[in-house]
């Protein structure tokens, strides 16, 4: 990923010396339930950060807070020095938050997201899945988008499935399609939300291989996963969460000998199976 600022970067206040992602005191409440209890986390450019923790620890909510799919109750999200804000809504003014929404849409395209349940578009072919964002968000012509989509599909090994409906793809292929769909928009940050959890065990490998390749290419990645082998191998930093807090973090090597009992028992519990 080149660090040369584009014309739009200056306009948006994006700066090359800013970290890829900065989360400041993120809190999230669902009613009275506190899911995120003041999270501070900075991710440098090119860094691969794996977030782990027991279910209900808030790791997915944190990830979804980055692109405002689940907007935090309070706290700040900064993406390359640009504040990511949830658009204001008004019960009376249909134009409220219009500018913020546009800005958020633009930022979201640059923060690719891959979901646990793939969420590929079932009414579109594999190629059209990738093309949609290119045409409707990036503003490419259909021809440019098709060419681009075919390259992205080839990169994830789905060149021969370009015309196929997602219905005939395996889980692993669907997830690779979802990765291609996100990568086509040239994201500078990729968010992975338990992307192998819904896959049959024999299909996990192909998706992890894709992510490994992406990490090696220098992509900034925020990965929520239970795949500890993958985490130890690919992560630059390992963040352990529990009950809405970051319990501890460090390099994968350091996390082999965790300081906290909660981290130790969590690692034991997932290595047990």
């Amino acid at each position: 990923m080149p660090d040369v600022p584009e014309a739009g970067d200056v306009r948006n206040g994006r700066r090359a010396d800013q970290p890829a992602l900065e989360l400041k005191d993120i809190r999230k409440y669902f009613g009275d339930l506190c899911v995120l209890d003041g999270i501070d986390l900075t991710i440098e450019r090119g860094e691969v950060v794996v977030i782990a923790g027991p279910s209900g620890s808030g790791k997915s909510t944190l990830l979804r807070g980055v692109n405002m799919l689940t907007p935090p109750t309070s706290g700040e999200v900064w993406f390359e020095g640009v504040r990511v804000v949830e658009p204001a809504t008004s019960r009376w003014n249909p134009f409220a938050g219009r500018r913020e929404r546009r800005r958020l849409q633009e930022l979201r395209a640059h923060m690719g997201m891959v979901f646990q349940h793939f969420n590929v578009f079932p009414h579109l072919s594999a190629r059209e899945n990738v093309m949609l964002g290119l045409v409707r968000v990036s503003g490419l012509t259909t021809d440019e988008a098709r060419e681009r989509a075919d390259r992205e599909l080839e990169a994830v090994g789905l060149a021969d499935k370009a015309d196929a409906s997602p219905a005939v793809l395996s889980g692993g292929q669907k997830q690779r399609l979802a990765i291609a769909r996100a990568l086509a928009l040239e994201p500078r940050l990729m968010l992975f939300d338990e992307v192998t959890s819904a896959l049959d065990p024999e299909l996990v490998g192909e998706v992890l291989a894709q992510m490994r390749e992406l990490a090696a290419a220098g992509m900034t990645m925020m990965v929520v996963t239970h795949e500890m082998g993958f985490a130890m191998e690919v992560a630059d930093r390992f963040v352990f969460m529990d009950e809405g807090n970051i319990v501890e973090q460090g390099t994968p090597a350091a996390m082999m000998n965790p300081q906290h009992e909660r981290t130790r028992s969590f690692l034991r519990s997932i290595q047990g199976d």
Binding site: N67, L69, R101, R102, Q105, E106, L107, R108, A109, M111, G112, M113, F115, H117, F118, N119, V120, F121, P122, H123, L132, G133, R136, V137, A178, R181, A182, L185
Partner: peptide, 30 residues
């Protein structure tokens, strides 16, 4: 239409109109 479809549309940066027009409505019609 699955909530994941709305989210995926949001995540690639589609506007609420684009999400409805290109992702949700075609599936809803079916």
């Amino acid at each position: 239409v699955d909530a994941g479809q709305w989210e995926a549309a949001d995540a690639i940066g589609l506007s609420p109109f684009g999400r409805m027009r290109y992702v949700v409505l075609p599936q809803a019609f079916r």
